[in-house]
Design a protein around this nucleic acid. Structure first.
Lengths: 153, 153
DNA sequence: CATATTTAAGACTCTTTTGTCTGAAATTAT
DNA sequence: ATAATTTCAGACAAAAGAGTCTTAAATATG
């Protein structure tokens, strides 16, 4: 798919943390249980985000992860870039290495437009804004189906 | 990326064959050399396309592969579906299994629109039409850079 | 200090993707 | 017939992605 599994997990975890406004640090164990993601795998992914200075972490009781800066200033784009790298928004859809306006592949022009829409989709709303929408509109970030209001406990 | 390597190779090979209008069968060896793709790997990929009844093949001298039906009736979409399956155009961008209009993820609505544009990009032009454009406008289907007119010999 | 909690780090396994290689089968040409 | 050409089939290997597990380090609490 367009994003790796790890990236999907990272995004969902970040959105979960963003919905926990008032709390300082959210334990990875809790995130993994709520979103039903392997704890150890999620730990590795969140370490990438802390190493990228998007999140901070704190060990010991009451520890966990939190955003390193205001979640109004972080977008999904930041998370995608940290986990999957810039590939999606740079590479030729046919895998040609020098594809560009000068030496375009047959899909280059249209793909560049769509890629730009994807970029907009991923960076037009901050995590804080998305968290609000998730709660107001009952959007899902977990596979659990049911009362939207219980999706995030 | 959005398409697998194998799918990129399959698309480029199909476009190359489409540019060879008058010829009956195009040898895989020739395609692999022109497009600089591993011969054996490309063979396997083209076998997928013949098994999907998009192409036919013929063994022996003067053998090779050709389209099983009029290339005016085949699109990149057909090739993508055969090699990568329907995943891209069906799955949730966050990997949620039941994501849809009833239980949407935060990106569902916008992603559905963009996915539709991708679908259009891949099926709005037939292989025959694309081959014409490749030749008229000098579009590239190989990594080789240089005189566009020599891209496809 | 001792213990419990929680992230950090890294080794390890499993699966999928990508790619290589060999031999068989079909076809043509000599 | 024999040899050359070309796809077919499948084993095999290498690399990347996904996921598991163990141990260490940091922090809090009693």
């Amino acid at each position: 798919m367009i994003l790796s599994n790890a990236c999907d997990y990272g995004i969902r975890a970040a959105l979960y943390v963003a919905t926990q406004r008032d709390r300082k640090f959210v334990p990875i164990r809790e995130i993994s249980e709520k979103l039903q993601i392997s704890f150890h795998f999620l730990t590795k992914i969140l370490q990438i985000l802390t190493q990228a200075n998007l999140m901070t972490s704190f060990r010991g009781p009451n520890g966990g992860v939190a955003f390193a800066r205001d979640p109004n200033q972080i977008t999904l784009m930041d998370i995608i870039q940290a986990i999957d790298g810039p590939g999606i928004f740079e590479k030729c859809v046919l895998g040609l290495s020098e594809c560009g306006d000068e030496h375009p592949c047959p899909l280059h022009e249209r793909w560049a437009e769509i890629r730009e829409e994807l970029r907009q989709m991923f960076q037009s709303n901050s995590l804080a804004r998305m968290a609000t929408k998730i709660q107001q509109k009952g959007f899902r970030i977990t596979d659990y189906l049911g009362n939207p209001n219980s999706t995030i406990h």
